[in-house]
Amino acid sequence: MKIEVFAILKEYFDKEFEIKDPLKTVEELRAHLALLNPASSNVLKICRFAVHDEFVADHYQLTGNDSVVVIPPSSGG
């Protein structure tokens, strides 16, 4: 699946990258990303995930074709 990250997460990951591991849920993806770069785990804990421009919950079922966006807490304004 394709992963895209924003803002502070770009200090831990490439802006866009691919994950081949068969991850079933957003919860598994969050844990997997934290393993890839342990320094990012505190930020990942408070990130929201989105698929097709919609936020998805931790139990959301991922497929290999999904493009997943990782959204850190907002800091606009």
């Binding site: 924003f6 803002a7 502070i8 959204i71 850190p72 907002s74 800091s75 606009g76 304004g77």
Partner: peptide, 12 residues
């Protein structure tokens, strides 16, 4: 403005 600041995926 409150909701934009807290919820919209925008970062500084």
């Amino acid at each position: 403005i409150d909701r934009i600041k807290h919820e919209a995926p925008i970062w500084k």
